[in-house]
Amino acid sequence: EAAAAVTSLTRLQIVHRDLKPSNVLVNEAGQVVKLIDFGLAHAGDHSKIDKKNIVAATGTPVYLPPEVLREERVTHKLDVYSFAIILWEMLSRELPYNGLTFQEMVRR
């Protein structure tokens, strides 16, 4: 259900910009109830998002794709990448860049 929600955002040209486990509500049966915290969301033409200090204005660094960390661009793929990191964390019980500094994450 979470994948379907992310797919719906993509179809609607909405970038959540801060997908992380705490923004995915799940009920006791393990079903996704809703995605929350659209405070950083952007709809429509993503080329209009201000590229200056984009990391500070876009989500939690560990869930952001490399191109955003390098301040290159923001697209709907940001949410797909963030969702993949959430899945990675669920399966491995750790983050892919666990223990690295922000600069090391960007470099890798």
Rank of each mutant, 00 (worst) to 15 (best):
E1G: 11
E1P: 13
A3Q: 07
A3L: 10
A4C: 04
A4W: 01
A4N: 08
T7Q: 14
T7W: 04
S8L: 10
S8F: 10
S8Y: 10
L9G: 01
L9T: 03
R11W: 06
L12Y: 06
L12I: 04
Q13P: 03
I14K: 01
H16I: 00
H16P: 02
H16C: 01
H16E: 05
R17A: 04
R17N: 05
D18W: 02
D18Y: 02
L19Y: 00
L19V: 09
L19T: 01
L19K: 01
K20M: 07
K20C: 05
K20I: 06
P21Y: 07
P21K: 04
P21G: 06
S22Y: 03
S22N: 12
L25F: 11
L25W: 07
V26G: 09
V26A: 08
V26R: 07
V26C: 10
V26D: 09
N27S: 13
E28R: 10
E28C: 10
A29N: 14
A29R: 11
Q31E: 15
Q31N: 13
Q31R: 12
V32G: 05
V32A: 10
V33M: 13
V33Q: 12
K34T: 12
D37Q: 06
D37Y: 01
F38R: 01
F38W: 07
F38E: 00
G39N: 09
G39K: 04
L40S: 07
H42R: 11
A43F: 11
A43G: 12
A43N: 08
D45N: 11
D45Q: 03
H46D: 07
H46L: 07
H46I: 01
S47K: 06
S47I: 03
I49V: 11
K51P: 04
K51Q: 10
K52V: 07
K52G: 08
V55N: 02
A56S: 09
A57S: 14
A57W: 05
A57Q: 09
T58V: 11
T58C: 12
T60P: 02
T60D: 02
T60N: 07
Y63K: 02
L64E: 03
L64R: 00
L64M: 15
P65T: 09
P65V: 05
P65H: 06
P66D: 14
E67R: 04
V68Q: 00
L69Q: 07
L69C: 11
R70S: 13
E71P: 01
E71T: 05
E71C: 08
E72Y: 05
V74R: 00
V74M: 01
V74P: 01
H76N: 08
H76W: 04
K77F: 08
K77G: 05
L78W: 00
L78G: 00
D79F: 00
V80K: 00
V80T: 12
Y81M: 06
A84L: 06
I85T: 05
I85Y: 00
I85D: 00
I86S: 02
I86A: 02
W88Y: 15
E89A: 10
E89P: 04
M90S: 14
M90V: 13
L91Q: 12
S92H: 13
L95P: 01
L95K: 09
L95W: 03
P96C: 11
Y97S: 12
N98P: 04
N98C: 15
L100C: 15
L100K: 12
T101G: 15
Q103F: 12
Q103Y: 13
E104F: 09
M105P: 09
M105Y: 10
M105L: 15
M105D: 13
V106K: 06
R107M: 15
R107G: 14
R108L: 14
R108A: 15
